[in-house]
Design a protein around this nucleic acid. Structure first.
Lengths: 262, 262
DNA sequence: CAGTGGTCTAGACCACTGC
DNA sequence: CAGTGGTCTAGACCACTGT
């Protein structure tokens, strides 16, 4: 009687074509799905599993790495492997840039996070002039230089989003937009004050696995994709006045859009 | 002089704290980023890398599995490891359900794919009556039973999307909607003919790693997330008349939305 | 057939965690 | 300190691919 024989895990089928490490992963996955291991719960240790299944450690590790890739579990050195808890998600509504949300002293992120009961933070704010990449340049109508505003957003101490806003330099230079804190209502309010009345936003959404850099910046665990949202703001003259490139931890976000049926 | 000594890969830094397999992955990643290995190109074989770096095969495999998890490469049994090509993406515009796109004999998917020069297919079409899950039930205003329409979409033979539409059964029973082919303009055209004039759609977007089932259905390679889009269609009386749950291969899609600045 | 990646073993030593 | 996962070795045999 091992510690696991009365537990949630069965035994291997030696006649099966399915690789042993996949069978083990299947059993762990099913146990998790059935709630035998709750969110945040610790899985049996590697040596427990080695003993239970009578396989080598590399085989067990292979199983666990499969589940990590699926985003089901994450391992913590010296502690164990845990069922990945679903963090609270941030819902982005499609009216989040409506003017009526812009009259606060605080940023949209702050207001919304506090309403949801979370503690919002913004850090790593860097504003500087740059030569745009080919892609940004094309979206902004080929300005020679741009103002780039970089910042990271955190909820309850957890980084959830990293964003860079690009604006044509001729439009932003020597304005409050070039200041770290652009003032109440954010840069969209400043743009309108400068006579660039906003008409609409185009948003472009992708999902992919994060780069090593993004893993570090957003402290992502294995098996968590990112959502990349590239938003272009157009004024009433049809000019692209800002491009915002946002990378979000996919497990922290749900995006909402409302489409008219026309 | 090994076959690789004049190639794109350097050597290890034994004084570095960085794990050997990470250093190898770093070098391969950089070589890919720099274009030393083009899209679709074959990486050096495992034995090449074992020889080049003087490490064991498991170490090399560990490096490669890291890159697979990042979605950078994918391995093909008996052939090699290849830089993952970016497949042509399907752009979903936010006006894709506008009535003016609905007067064709063909489905929106077909029309749009042909316009983009791809060969569209729809398969695995199954229509049946079901008891809704708690989530679907809540979205549809708690009907006792629903009509579920499942189908898979392919582009040039590649599965890109799996979708399930749910409609309250009292609304869809004994109508063309319950037929495998609901006719020109699709189910939205039929809903309007039945007096359910569409007012708007709510779309909810998430990204996550696929389940093993989704990997099979969409033939996803390692390191490819899925985008899950849950759309609810509302009629002019405010009633939810359809919920469509769509799972898309993330490397095949870019979603576009236009938001009014209000 | 030779070459490729897929699976698996049976060890070893290390780094991190918590008591 | 004992227990955990992280890294690495040096093999072995298998399954799939192309010629």
């Amino acid at each position: 009687m091992t510690a696991l024989s009365s537990g949630a895990l069965g035994s291997l089928d030696p006649t099966s074509d399915r690789a042993v490490f996949r069978q083990i992963a299947d059993q762990l996955r099913e146990a998790i799905d059935r709630g035998k291991f709750a969110e945040g719960a610790k899985l049996p240790s590697e040596s427990d599993l080695v003993e239970h299944y009578g396989v080598s450690r590399m085989t067990v590790r292979n199983s666990i790495s499969l589940l990590q890739g699926e985003g089901l579990v994450s391992s913590e050195h010296g502690k164990g492997v845990f069922v990945r808890p679903r963090p609270p998600v941030r819902r982005l509504a499609s009216d989040r840039f409506a003017r009526r949300h812009r009259d606060q002293g605080k940023s949209a992120f702050t207001v919304e996070a506090e309403a949801a009961g979370s503690r919002p933070e913004v850090d790593s704010l860097v504003v500087k002039e740059e030569r745009p990449t080919a892609d940004i340049s094309a979206r902004l109508g080929a300005p020679r230089k741009v103002l780039a505003r970089r910042r990271r957003y955190l909820l309850d101490g957890r980084p959830v989003e990293f964003a860079v806003s690009y604006l044509p330099l001729d439009l932003a230079r020597d304005t409050p937009i070039a200041q770290p804190n652009p003032g109440p209502g954010g840069i969209y309010a400043r743009l309108e004050e400068l006579g660039h009345h906003l008409d609409h936003f185009d948003e472009e959404i992708r999902a992919r696995m994060p780069s090593p850099q993004e893993v570090k910046t957003l402290r992502l665990s294995a098996g968590v994709p990112v959502i990349q949202l590239i938003r272009t703001a157009f004024d009433t003259k049809g000019r692209a006045v800002e491009v915002c490139d946002t990378v979000m931890a996919a497990d922290a976000y749900v995006l909402n859009y409302r489409l008219p049926a026309t």
